[in-house]
Design a protein around this nucleic acid. Sequence first.
RNA 1: CGGGACGUAGCGCAGUCCGGUAGCGCACCUGAAUGGGGUUCAGGGGGUCGCGGGUUCGAAUCCCGCCGUCCCGACCA
Length: 489
Amino acid sequence: MADDKKLTTRAEDFSAWYNEVVLRAELADYSPVKGSMVIRPNGYGIWERMQRALDDKFKATGHVNAYFPLLIPESFMKKEAQHVEGFAPECAVVTHGGGKELEERLYIRPTSETIIYHMFAKWVQSYRDLPILMNQWANIVRWEMRTRLFLRTLEFLWQEGHTAHATHEEGEAEARKMLGVYRDFMEGWIAMPVITGYKSESEKFAGGLRTYACEALMQDNKALQAGTSHDLGQNFSKAFDLKFQSESGEVEYAWNTSWGVSTRMVGGLVMTHGDDNGLVTPPKLAPIEIVIVPIWKTDEERSKLVEAANKLKDELTSWSGRGEDRLRVHIDAREGMKPGAKYYEWELRGIPLRLELGPKDLEKQSVFSARRDTRAKAAIPMAGVAASVAQLLGTIQSDLFTAAKARRDAATHRGDISYARFKEIMDGPGGFVYAGWNGDPAVEAQVKEETKATIRVIPDAEFRSPDAPMTCMVTGQPAKHEVVWAKAY
RNA sequence: CGGGACGUAGCGCAGUCCGGUAGCGCACCUGAAUGGGGUUCAGGGGGUCGCGGGUUCGAAUCCCGCCGUCCCGACCA
């Protein structure tokens, strides 16, 4: 930072910009343990709103919450072969407890499939016990080598849904349904457009049959995997003996799914909407939607305006036009700080809407508003102010999505793209490239080696090009799929 | 774990080459004025100079060892 007051700009150095926004908006701070972080109230407040919105959606789709323990016996981790292979290198293991070496080592969960399906096996006997639709909110540990605030840390918070079904069709439908729930949340709440689809073999969850994912594009044109949903097939039910007796009396293994989103989404929010003045929070996820800044010169004016600000806050928070979801308002009446300094601070923190209230506004029976996203300013009449403000917040929410989608589409390349051109794109601006792929993992590995880009997703029909490429971008052989390439976080 | 850089106040840094007992900006505290886009003045608090050892009358500075952090690579929600 050349100037202490200014952020590094996104154009100068995107990752420096990201770190500064996260630290200075007080979303998080580094903890003494390398690679782990403290989520501060400003960041946790966003996560809490994410949790609430998602939890409501999970409940609405018939899921219930439970909690499974942090520690998993080593033997459990080793029961599902691919799962072991996928996770072993990044697991933290407890070897000692109660002052002595443990007989069986305990893994700190990197995810909870093993313990959960072990328990499900205990609880399920008959098809009448199915489906089980369960979710837990938890912390998990994955020992990453290179970490970044929110995007990749040793420990993070997430939810993991786990379900058991009598048929594959039903499991498959569940995995797809939850992918849709994630998409609705990401687009409707984070205002972050995503591509949905499924992962190639090399990118899928170790131990599952198929991994579905939501992929978003950040402002530096790198992709962020924002959520995943797995069709686990019967791999875990076989490993953990999760059986049931069917209607016809046969004993069968259950079909499982698991799906999760994490605090990584907070990083996605920052990198989707943030600008060179700092964080921009979509109103629906903002712990504070509106900050009122009273403006005064003299002491008499101060008491008058602070009173007026309180009155305005009362009017806003008591308004019931949004039902139980009351407007979330904060008054900044700090002394010894000029209004301009306050504006910069609240902008850095991403508060969606600022209302300035000074003597002139009182005279005119209005407040002066400033949008965080566009920085557009306008006077709002006091009469009906709550409804006006709520409407404006709604506009901000939808404008953020529109702008993010326009950015993504501008950085999306389709059509007949040569591998040489592809390399130019990945070397330069980056972005999503839709291209044909012959389905060969060796080709995928070669592209990754040569360009650092990976197949983010084999897209759902809705996202596919109307004139999808018929040939593989690399080999020229007939294409098996149209796939989406990008460099990823 | 390999390659590079760096550890001095909460943060960012100067001082290290050429040893003499620590300084600047921001932040913080107090007071006064200021107050519609980063306010000014005055006063003030805060440092085992990463750790350990050595050389020296004397070490942030020179020597040896260790530790840690960051960046670049191999792994990843």
